[in-house]
Design a protein around this nucleic acid. Sequence first.
DNA 1: AATGAATGAGAGTTCATTCAT
DNA 2: AATGAATGAACTCTCATTCAT
Lengths: 193, 193, 193, 193
Amino acid sequence: MNSDATSAPASREERRDALVLAAYNQIAERGFEGLRTREVAAEAGVNIATLHYYFPTKEALIRGVVEHAMRRFRSTLAPHGTPEAQLRNHLRAVRRLLQDEPQLGAVMGELSLRSARDPAIAHIMQDTNEAWHRTLRGLLRRAAAGGHLKPELDSDAVAALVVAALTSMTLPTVSASPRTDQALRQLERWLGI
Amino acid sequence: MNSDATSAPASREERRDALVLAAYNQIAERGFEGLRTREVAAEAGVNIATLHYYFPTKEALIRGVVEHAMRRFRSTLAPHGTPEAQLRNHLRAVRRLLQDEPQLGAVMGELSLRSARDPAIAHIMQDTNEAWHRTLRGLLRRAAAGGHLKPELDSDAVAALVVAALTSMTLPTVSASPRTDQALRQLERWLGI
Amino acid sequence: MNSDATSAPASREERRDALVLAAYNQIAERGFEGLRTREVAAEAGVNIATLHYYFPTKEALIRGVVEHAMRRFRSTLAPHGTPEAQLRNHLRAVRRLLQDEPQLGAVMGELSLRSARDPAIAHIMQDTNEAWHRTLRGLLRRAAAGGHLKPELDSDAVAALVVAALTSMTLPTVSASPRTDQALRQLERWLGI
Amino acid sequence: MNSDATSAPASREERRDALVLAAYNQIAERGFEGLRTREVAAEAGVNIATLHYYFPTKEALIRGVVEHAMRRFRSTLAPHGTPEAQLRNHLRAVRRLLQDEPQLGAVMGELSLRSARDPAIAHIMQDTNEAWHRTLRGLLRRAAAGGHLKPELDSDAVAALVVAALTSMTLPTVSASPRTDQALRQLERWLGI
DNA sequence: AATGAATGAGAGTTCATTCAT
DNA sequence: AATGAATGAACTCTCATTCAT
């Protein structure tokens, strides 16, 4: 619950964001299964009718959450440094992001499952995944060209494997395991970074 | 819809199984979000009250689905042959299972996410994952001991990575990608199998 | 409110009818504007969910009311005796029906207005009106053929005027006027019956 | 939608009238059942809060509509010429008015039904009807006195019948019928005008 | 004089569960 | 063992109205 009597009056954008964030947290905590508009409104400190003033339907609110999660996740995709360093940093950044903000993993997992039933989400997730894959493949190729990576690697296949390994960490079953860090380090060893 | 007027009268066990299977399919198709007991009963060809005769609550029915999914999944964990062959076969068997019975992946994904909220499911999923991990680690060790695997590999870490990679395939985002097979082949290459 | 603790258990058909009757009374009392499913359920002595067990939507319930009102009204259209007597009896029967069961007039008025927005209702009302018109025209012709009516009358036009005059009595503005009976008697005088 | 950016700034009275007219049109189109203040405000090109500045409640707005409709209708009641001509003209004027401005019939019908629940409306409608009746009766008497009408007619009863017949034309069921004009002509024939 | 933002009360509808038979 | 009927609680969404500016 967020109702802070001393907080400054929220602007239009801030209130929208607060609602999206509340929904984001609710989805992380209870899944789409347990997402209740009244709960979201309460957590944002507003009346249920106010929620509908900003988002005409629950679906519209969910689209807001999708955008938020994607923006949040894409922030990890813009590294700098040498390609090898970027690769290593990227693996660790994703891992850290999912650890520091466990909601993101949960929401991404929920969205991934929902994409099987919701073409709009499927499309967005696919786009994001494609961008992610291309970024990784680019890094792998440049690292190989610079002689800092075993040249026999198929950059497409490796990129796909890295995406898969990192994606699996959005699932509690995997991310809760104490061996997940070992798995990532093994990946780094194989990549030689 | 399963109501076959000419079918033999269903035994207690058969009816229970039919209900579990109907629920399993419903979860695969609509997620926990869209699981409706009435729909399950209808698909099993019985009245909603009959469902509650076999499963007092929706939760009880879900526990039945969990058992079913786990049994289904564990069946892939019992390979034979040389350790290297078992390893390779296992990777392919999991891949094939998820392709042939897409419901299993969907349900496993749903269960994985739900385990964050449901300790009972979390416990079962963890047990299954532990068993899976131990099986893989054993194979890796025996393969290494037989000289059929690069000896410098940390079998614990590799097993974790394999589990992660295969688990990621329960998510539509990954399993729908055309590069998933390449990723698996890359894994085989690194393992040297 | 109808909840009679000593009443016999209602059969499927009885309960349906009770709900339709409750809705019919509510529409008469408060108009479509004030029709509330919860109120209807309460008047029929059942839970709101039970109402939806019998009628999936409010619209379905309204269709039930339309049928009921039409059946109720058509019952007046089957007279017997000589054509002149039938005519006279019909005028009086309609008048009496609307006086004894003021709900019917109110509901018919509501339906008439709603037919401007609801093609299904428009169709039903039109059919009923056509049947009514034909019945009256038939009576007028037979009465004229028997020499009991001024032969110069245009039976089509007269029938239309009778329908209009009687229909106007569904409006409270008209039916509440103390001169409505005089108007009907004037009509009889002109018809010579 | 009426928002004309180039129009002169509306005066207090004009804005009030615009809102009443918008409400009048909405009632004609959707009935009291579908009357929404937001829709009215939008059609008048103002904010919903502005509507409440002019009309504190929805009821107040409706009273405004009642006045407007009554004024509109009464305009037909002031004929001139010989009594017979006035009578004939009146019948035709009402018919034409309802054809040219179908909203008026719809609104009058809605008001008539509402008068059963709303004493204020009932009172106004009754007054209007009384005035109408007296006007017609006066015309009938003068026409009879002038020898232009069958003298045996009961002017009170005939006036009531004329009012009833014309009132019925506010109902779509009647006014939509192609025989309404015939009915009116039959009335004229009987009156001998 | 006018508005964007907010809300309380309540609408129709859904759903897991229960009960009498 | 099986069901039709019934329900309490809760859901998303709507609407007339209010309030600060």
